[in-house]
């Protein structure tokens, strides 16, 4: 038996919006620790990892680990039927082939249940080693979203260069080129600022199409963290307050 009740149901709606553009079908892994997912996009150059810890739910029960395969487009259709203030409960039997989403209005005067058919999905689980990254950038998530969106109107790829002075985003396209530099913010009173931790300067190039998909997670967190090392996939992480994270990995473009 799996049962998870989330008073802030809008969080689950936002989580789904943050992954459904990247992945169509995915296995959710439910365990005593929480509700998790790891999935690659169809071209296998990007990966999303989600964790919602058990203690972030008002009620959480998972008698034995289970995998629930869902079509995310269909899951999204159902979650869109929940009000933003609704409480969402997910329920599934151990041997069942459906998951039930129950929506309760805050005044408890409307209760809905939606049953989604589960599916068998073959998926590769990747082991991602813990790595010390050469550069870590924390910046306002809305700023990162804006930069990715703006640059994708000029070019298809972005080169991200991190030095001790700041982080530079550059692109080139048919119409010209663009550079945006965010300097490390030195004012201490600003909560959302650009902070750089640097072991050594690093420059990597990525497809903007994927980064733009990652920024669908912007409503989940005020800050985004980018971690980069030479010739390694970038990690783009959004922390979900008191609950877990949505983390994306993207392979860099490498010169032939």
């Amino acid at each position: 038996m799996f049962e998870a009740r989330l008073v802030q149901g809008s969080l689950l709606k936002k989580v789904l919006e943050s992954i459904k553009d990247l992945v169509t079908d995915a296995n959710f892994d439910c365990s005593q620790n929480g509700f998790a997912l790891q999935a690659m996009d169809s071209s296998h150059v990007s990966l999303v990892a989600l964790l919602l810890r058990n203690d972030g739910f008002e009620h959480y029960r998972c008698d034995r680990p289970m995998t629930m395969g869902m079509n995310l487009t269909n899951m999204s259709k159902m979650l869109k039927c929940a009000g933003n203030d609704d409480i969402i409960t997910m329920k599934a039997d151990d041997a069942g082939d459906v998951v039930t989403f129950m929506f309760e209005s805050p005044e408890q005067d409307k209760i809905s249940d939606f049953e989604l058919k589960l599916m068998d999905i073959d998926s590769e689980h990747l082991g991602i080693p813990d790595t010390e990254y050469a550069a870590t950038v924390k910046m306002p998530s809305a700023e990162f979203q804006r930069i990715c969106r703006d640059l994708s109107s000029i070019g298809d790829t972005v080169t991200i260069s991190v030095s001790k002075d700041g982080v530079k985003f550059s692109t080139t396209g048919d119409i010209g080129q663009a550079n945006i530099t965010c300097r490390q913010n030195t004012s201490v009173d600003k909560e959302e600022q650009t902070v750089i931790e640097l072991q050594e300067p690093v420059t990597l190039t990525f497809a903007l199409r994927y980064l733009n998909s990652f920024t669908k997670a912007t409503p989940l967190a005020p800050t985004v963290q980018l971690q980069m090392s030479k010739e390694l996939p970038v990690v783009v992480q959004y922390l979900i307050a008191d609950m877990g994270y949505v983390r994306y990995y993207l392979a860099p473009k490498i010169e032939d």
């Binding site: 296998h44 990747l126 392979a251 490498i254």
Partner: peptide, 14 residues
């Protein structure tokens, strides 16, 4: 030109 490797070449498959 530039190429993009699969993530499976960076991480190991479980």
């Amino acid at each position: 030109g530039s190429a993009q490797k699969s993530l499976t070449s960076f991480f190991f498959t479980k």
